[in-house]
Design a protein around this nucleic acid. Sequence first.
DNA 1: CTAAGCACTCGCCACCCGACAGTGCTAACC
DNA 2: GGTTAGCACTGTCGGGTGGCGAGTGCTTAG
Lengths: 345, 345
Amino acid sequence: MLDDRKLAVLRAIVRDYVATEEPVGSKTLVDRHNLGVSPATIRNDMAVLEEEGYIAQPHTSAGRIPTDKGYRLFVDRLSEVRALSPAERRAIQQFMDNAVNLDDVVDRTVRLLSQLTRQVAVVQYPSLSGATVRHLELLNMAPGRVMMVLITDTGRVEQRVVEVPVVTSDDLLPDLRARLNAVMDGKRLTAADQAVAALGTQFRVVDPVVDGAVVARVVDALREMIDESRDQRVVMAGAANLTRAGHDFSDSLHVVLEALEEQVVLMRLLGEAATPDLSVRIGHETTVAGLAGTSVVASTYGRGEVVSRLGVIGPTRMDYPGTMGAVRAVARYVGQLISGESPGA
Amino acid sequence: MLDDRKLAVLRAIVRDYVATEEPVGSKTLVDRHNLGVSPATIRNDMAVLEEEGYIAQPHTSAGRIPTDKGYRLFVDRLSEVRALSPAERRAIQQFMDNAVNLDDVVDRTVRLLSQLTRQVAVVQYPSLSGATVRHLELLNMAPGRVMMVLITDTGRVEQRVVEVPVVTSDDLLPDLRARLNAVMDGKRLTAADQAVAALGTQFRVVDPVVDGAVVARVVDALREMIDESRDQRVVMAGAANLTRAGHDFSDSLHVVLEALEEQVVLMRLLGEAATPDLSVRIGHETTVAGLAGTSVVASTYGRGEVVSRLGVIGPTRMDYPGTMGAVRAVARYVGQLISGESPGA
DNA sequence: CTAAGCACTCGCCACCCGACAGTGCTAACC
DNA sequence: GGTTAGCACTGTCGGGTGGCGAGTGCTTAG
């Protein structure tokens, strides 16, 4: 049904609409792209494309705009991911290489991504589930308050304060710390959790009442920590881009902004990116209510066990090739960075 | 010049305008508040108030709206901070008491504040300058990569990865850690910095070339860390509130959102709150460009050395008594929380 | 000092109308 | 059969107009 020229027309419509943000008519189409036929012919093609649901007209006497289905076809078959310019690559490198710790890496990534794409960027912290335990530190903050700091090989630091019965023996905490570290060190979090549980019961039997209670609290908190560290944090940046001229969110802006402030929503948005590598969800393809007018370009990043997601959110009318290129480039760079390799440009 | 009735009129205008978001005229004024005089009299008073610069009319045939100067007078002399309802207090308590660590406390605080006031909330992390060092941890992440984790008594954890020449001796790091901890433990950050510097030079002389280089890198990084930890982090929440109906940011929204995404701007906004306790900056009183249409209600929180700031940002046309009440209440509660006292409601 | 009456000033809104862009259809053309 | 030219049609957008109403300032009287 769709011969080559019709596809070319669709491609031209998408590109023009994205560029001008105005419904595109048959005449302007033949003017801007040299399609070699007359407007009337294009009109016939457009009629077919509309019938098939790839384009639509906002009102009778206006040009056509792509539908979600049209964008989908465009992304899948009519465009290619745009590689970044050397200048852009250099910018990524320079900006990221100044990061001093994991928080900083994530923070810079999200800001970088939002600036490159001029859209809302979202980055999920590197997952902990595959991470291995590097060290656990126990500290007496105040009588009855113990601070626990858990460090993983991904550079992530989880902290927590627990209330315990007043510590009686001076060397309980160091002792406990040594034991816990001995048991957990180098283990994956899941394995560490089990080891800690086992140690907990054993320890509890051997020691006197008060100490036992302390140990119990610490072990419980530690397990809780390991467990909770699984619900990933997500950071967002570039919300101001939603208000850029040409974004017709005007009315739904409130809804979109509200949605984007919810960690859960952001998680789901990234989580929907089922595809292993680069993924694009367009308009109604998202399951998040209120975000039907947006598209999400996301990608996994990292290697092996240390894997997570990042992406950007923008209007369905976005520059897909460019956005996909930026997301892919940043994902690759950050992936190498947190894997400990010194990434080339 | 301003007798009691004129002040009452101003008070009524501010309240009405904040409530209805529409310019208020003389007739509606006498209808809603029983001022005991006729509209004509009010009109005379309003003429005086306008002449003095407390109110203005957006256009000739409209009612009056308060000017920044008018709000200022209202805040200073015509209103009182509204105490929170028991229900609100309970909500604060419940919400905050589930926090598990400092990040969580700050995160919850900012969300709580934005929900209570229905405005953009900003919270600055508790300052480190007065904090004392609790512990320093050094970890070999990979050959040539050392992770440093600095923990203070405020519960704040700073981390950083440094690249070093490959570590040769196995016990260099533990040894170094022990020495550094011995020197820093319990000290204020500034004092710790000096102690570390002293130790650095001393250590460097004693040890062989490679180790010396490692020590130098670590000490340098540590000092840098202490130094940088002074540029405070600020978190923001509730940006969606900017788009609530009735906020006439419509055009300047972009500017405001952009400003609020800049850490530096947020810092300055809070920093301007010179007054010890609760402070209000109205409209043009702020020095931040682009935020002339907003007011900032801020407060310090915490006690003694551990002191920082929080606040909310909203349109000049805001419910000052209510907002001030909420900010004050949250500041007090969080202050107690991070001081380690178990706060009563 | 307060109140009543009154003319006046604008912003808002609904309405109309013409210009315009783009379409679908039909008929001719290669 | 696909392509093209011509043409009537449809809906949006912008500007212009007029009535309405809220609110004011002024003047004058109590």
